[in-house]
Amino acid sequence: MKEFMSLVRRDLLLSWREGGAIGTALGFYLIVVAILPLGLGPDLNLLSRIAPGVLWVALLLAALLSVDRIFHNDYEDGTLEALALGPLPLEAITAAKCLAHWISTGIPLTLTAPVLGLLLNLDAQAFAVLVLTMLVGTPAVSFIGAIGAALTLGLRRGGLLLSLLVLPLYIPILIFGVSSVSAVISGPSSFTASFLILCALSMASIVLAPLACAAALKLNLQ
């Protein structure tokens, strides 16, 4: 456990010092959300109706931009191989790296979302729920994205391929994330049901994704 936490701390420190990547993801999030009204027209009713969906979709795309960095640098400079020889099993290493990615990318994106919600005239009672669902959903975004990152490690045009592999797997998170937010706004369906399913999805991906990641990394480290 001590090794696990120190690995998380190391990854967080690295991404903090590096800085640029999370800035890019946040900037991307902002620009996608800002460019949408320019395409759809400034009708505030329309914007507030589609706000939960837009915020979620843009969050997935922004997170996708940074997901390929989970393993990339450590793979390039050989750290990953050194870690694999260490005391931690590969599954725990990937879990630690995903956790660090969630803290360094998922949480900042989640905290940006309500600000962008203002731009889209998001319903006032939805802000708290939006942050809550994103906080629950973004771990799954990091963990599932890591599978794609591990599979495309070291490939040319890996980033493009990554989005093709990972986006279909994000669909359930998107659906339940958006439907629990819109349940609060417009109502007929139940918030609790969607939200609990989102929690279940997130937990399942935290447990299962490291297994797939470790299997994929073993292929690359041979």
Binding site: I147, P168, I171, P172, I175, F176, S179, A212, L219, N220
Partner: peptide, 28 residues
């Protein structure tokens, strides 16, 4: 051989996800 085993991992991950995707699309 790497392509085969990577694709195999992806296929299994996808297969686990198919029922979940089906369920969520039905819900949606």
């Amino acid at each position: 051989s790497r392509a085969g085993r990577s694709a195999a991992i992806l296929a299994i991950v996808g297969f686990v996800n198919v029922p979940i995707i089906k369920f969520s699309v039905d819900w949606w």
